[in-house]
Each structure stands twice: as structure tokens, then as C-alpha cells.
């Protein structure tokens, strides 16, 4: 990457470092990013295709890989919509109304982000596992949540819990309630107001939250690892499948499957960048001219 160090704003001469300093700083930053960002990403694709296209393809269409893909999609398909509905409900109640304990509620919603993924899985094992609080009862009724698909879904919901809500709460707060009130005065019902006024106003923020939520849901490893039981073809998600292949020294296959997740990450980043641009547009648009 060739670095042409030009000041962002040419007019501000005093605010600009001498050219060699600029080159040095850019060089150092790039070196750091190469070691910690670009190379790790490149390694994934390099290793994935190291044994050729046919090995790559075979690793993806192998039955256990397909089962893992199916399970990951299932878990995301349940967790993301649930957390989306939750995010909308939480943002509506928090942004449009005043009530005591609001800031505590916001802190609690953010809580799952600060819990270690391993602990996020463990709490469900302690609740629903054989030795957990509800374990004996569940066992009696022949219900298995842990080391089964429901446990994976639960852990996924937990780790992606705050994503949509934390995008929507500040966005809805900044938009206030005047437009909703205007809709009500014009005769709209509560549902019409939500559907025609609130939702269109937050749609980009909602999509942003959903995309991040989905990326984490499909990529979660630690929490899912604790509750899964690693039963091949049954309770393995894509990341868990990657782990098993890697530990079996099946490196090419491990990276082939991992490249799927890396592509998901790149698509997520692209969508995120595009949406951030949209959200910025929206923010500048909504500032009144007068």
C-alpha cells in the first residue's frame, strides 16, 4: 500500500506534522494493522485454498459440515428475530416514555456484553444441566436442553441479546416523540403510527443492529461450546466444526469452513460501512435548517 501523505485540510498548515513524521506514523500504523488485521485475514483464505479448490469444496459439502451450517442458520434464525422484537419493544418503552429505574434497565440490557462467553454458556448449564437447578425436573420429564439444540439457541440469544436494543435506544431517543404525536393527532392508531412513522425512521438503525446481531449469532464460539456437547452432525455449529477439524490437524478443511465465517464477517463489515454512511446522512438530514 503506497502512502501518499497529504494533509486532510491543506489550509491548516500549523496543524500538520512534517512529511517524514507523517510517513513514519502512517508506516507504523500500517505495520501494526498488517500484523494484527490483514495477515490473519489473509491466512484464512491462504490456508483454505492451500490444497486446491476440490479439497476446499469437499470440506464444505461434507455431511457434518452441512449439518453444522444448518444448525448455525437455525440458531441465528431463532435468536435474531427474538432479539429484534425485544430490541424494538425495549427501545419503544425506554425512548418514548419516562419511568424510574430507566438507566438501570439500560445497564442491565448491556450486561451480556460484559459477561465472558464461557460464563454465558455456563449459567445455562447451571440452570438446565443435569446437575443444575432445574436439571432433575427436566430429566424426569425427559426434556434435554443442555448438550442439545435448545441450549445452543439459548446461549446464542444471550450473547446477542443487546445488539438491536443498544442501536435503537439512542436513535429513538434522539428522534423524540413529536412525529408520533403528529400521527396520532392526524387520526392514526398506535399500530399505524408505529408502522408508518416510527419504523421507517429507525429502519437503518434496526438493520444495522440486526446485521451485527446476526454476525455474532453465527460466529459465537465460547458460549455455544459450553452448552453444545460437541456431538458431530447434531450439536455442532460452524465455529465448533472448525475447532474439531483444526484439532484433528485437518487444517485445510478447518480453514475452508472458517473461510465461510470470514466471508460472513467481510459482508457484515461492508453492510455495516454502508449503513453507517446512511445513518450519518439521516442524522445530518434531520437537523432543522432554520
Amino acid at each position: 500500500m503506497s502512502a501518499i501523505a497529504a494533509p486532510s485540510v491543506p489550509a491548516r498548515r500549523v496543524n500538520v506534522e512534517p512529511l517524514p513524521v507523517r510517513w513514519l506514523l502512517i508506516g507504523l500504523a500500517l505495520l501494526f494493522l498488517v500484523g494484527f488485521l490483514f495477515l490473519p485475514l489473509a491466512v484464512v483464505f491462504g490456508q483454505a485454498f492451500s490444497k486446491g479448490w476440490s479439497v476446499y469444496w469437499a470440506a464444505l459439502v461434507e455431511p457434518n459440515a452441512l449439518a453444522a451450517i444448518r444448525l448455525t442458520l437455525t440458531a441465528a434464525l431463532i435468536a435474531v428475530p427474538l432479539n429484534m422484537v425485544f430490541g424494538l419493544a425495549a427501545a419503544w418503552s425506554i425512548a418514548k416514555f419516562e419511568f424510574p429505574g430507566k438507566s438501570l434497565l439500560i445497564t442491565l440490557i448491556d450486561l451480556p456484553f460484559s459477561v465472558s462467553p464461557v460464563v454465558s454458556g455456563l449459567i445455562y448449564v447451571l440452570l438446565f444441566g443435569l446437575h443444575g437447578w432445574l436439571g432433575p425436573w427436566l430429566h424426569e420429564h425427559d426434556i434435554q436442553l443442555i448438550f442439545a439444540v435448545p441450549g445452543i439457541v439459548l446461549a446464542t440469544i444471550f450473547v446477542t441479546f443487546p445488539f438491536v436494543a443498544r442501536e435503537l435506544i439512542p436513535l429513538m431517543q434522539s428522534q423524540g416523540t413529536e412525529e408520533e404525536e403528529a400521527a396520532m393527532v392526524l387520526g392514526a392508531s398506535g399500530w399505524q403510527t408505529f408502522w408508518h412513522v416510527t419504523l421507517p425512521n429507525v429502519k437503518w438503525g434496526l438493520l444495522y443492529g440486526v446485521i451485527l446481531c446476526n454476525a455474532r449469532a453465527m460466529g459465537e464460539f465460547g458460549a455455544v461450546s459450553v452448552v453444545s456437547g460437541h456431538i458431530r452432525g447434531l450439536t455442532n455449529t460452524i465455529p465448533l466444526h472448525v475447532e474439531i477439524l483444526y484439532n484433528e490437524y485437518n487444517t485445510a478443511a478447518a480453514f475452508a469452513v472458517a473461510s465461510l465465517l470470514a466471508m460472513l464477517a467481510l459482508v457484515t463489515l461492508a453492510a455495516k460501512t454502508a449503513l453507517e454512511w446512511r445513518l450519518k446522512q439521516q442524522a445530518t438530514q434531520s437537523t432543522p435548517l432554520a
Binding site: E181, A183, L186, A188, S189, N201, P288
Partner: peptide, 24 residues
Amino acid sequence: FVFQHYALFRHMTVFENIAFGLRV
């Protein structure tokens, strides 16, 4: 009701804003 900051629906055209009360 005319709001202080107008509360126009920012994602709708002027036409759709005015039509809103009839459409709902």
C-alpha cells in the same frame, strides 16, 4: 395540531405527509 418543530415525517414526501391523515 401544528407542532413547534413541525414534526413532519422525514421519510415521506411533502405529498405523503399531507395525505397521511387521510390514508390512515
